[in-house]
Simulated assay, not measured.
Amino acid sequence: MTIATAKLSDPVVRRLVEAINGHDRNAFVGLLTTDATMSDDGSDRNLQEWIDREIFDAGGRMDVQKESDGGHTLLARFRNDTWGEMSTVWRFDVHDGRVSRFETGQA
């Protein structure tokens, strides 16, 4: 079962998912703090390089299956042209209307 993006609880996370699915890198980056960080499968990565390689240059798309923690944790089917489709978990730290950190990895 997929949760419609418009139904996601946290408005910042909702706009971030919309930016991913709309392939709108500028909107995505605009939702991050200037010092935002991220990790993939437990390893910190260079955020700008990662979002280009895994999301925006690779046709990334997220279908949310479940949300928890006030909408800051998502279980989602994520797919891109490099890795295909996989079950992933995303955790977002949201402060003052921006994401300061997100962590993702296989579920």
Rank of each mutant, 00 (worst) to 15 (best):
I3F: 10
I3E: 01
I3K: 03
T5P: 05
S9K: 14
S9G: 11
D10V: 12
P11R: 12
P11H: 11
P11I: 12
V12Q: 02
V12F: 01
V12D: 00
V13H: 02
R14T: 05
R14P: 06
R14G: 07
R15N: 12
R15T: 09
L16Q: 09
L16S: 05
V17T: 03
V17S: 02
V17Q: 06
E18N: 00
A19Q: 03
A19F: 06
A19S: 05
A19C: 02
I20K: 12
I20F: 09
D24K: 06
D24H: 03
A27F: 07
V29H: 02
G30V: 04
D35I: 06
T37C: 02
T37H: 03
M38V: 06
S39R: 07
S39G: 14
D40F: 15
D40S: 12
D41M: 07
D41S: 10
D44T: 09
D44N: 04
R45Y: 10
N46W: 04
L47A: 07
L47E: 05
L47Q: 04
L47F: 03
E49G: 15
W50V: 03
W50Q: 09
R53A: 15
R53L: 14
E54W: 15
I55H: 14
F56A: 01
D57S: 08
A58W: 07
G59Q: 14
G59M: 15
G59D: 14
G60P: 13
G60I: 10
R61F: 05
R61L: 07
M62Q: 07
D63T: 12
D63R: 10
V64W: 14
Q65T: 13
E67L: 08
S68C: 00
S68V: 00
D69G: 12
D69A: 11
D69T: 05
G70N: 14
H72S: 10
T73N: 09
L74A: 00
L75F: 05
L75G: 04
L75N: 12
A76W: 08
F78T: 15
F78V: 15
R79H: 13
N80F: 09
N80C: 07
D81N: 10
D81P: 10
D81I: 05
T82P: 06
T82A: 11
T82H: 05
T82K: 11
W83P: 04
W83Q: 04
G84E: 08
G84C: 01
E85G: 01
M86V: 07
S87D: 14
T88Q: 10
V89N: 02
V89R: 02
V89E: 00
W90V: 08
R91P: 02
D93T: 15
V94Q: 04
H95T: 01
D96Q: 06
G97F: 02
G97K: 00
R98C: 10
V99F: 06
R101T: 06
R101S: 07
F102Y: 14
E103R: 11
T104F: 12
G105W: 03
G105T: 05
G105L: 08
Q106G: 10
Q106M: 15
A107Y: 02
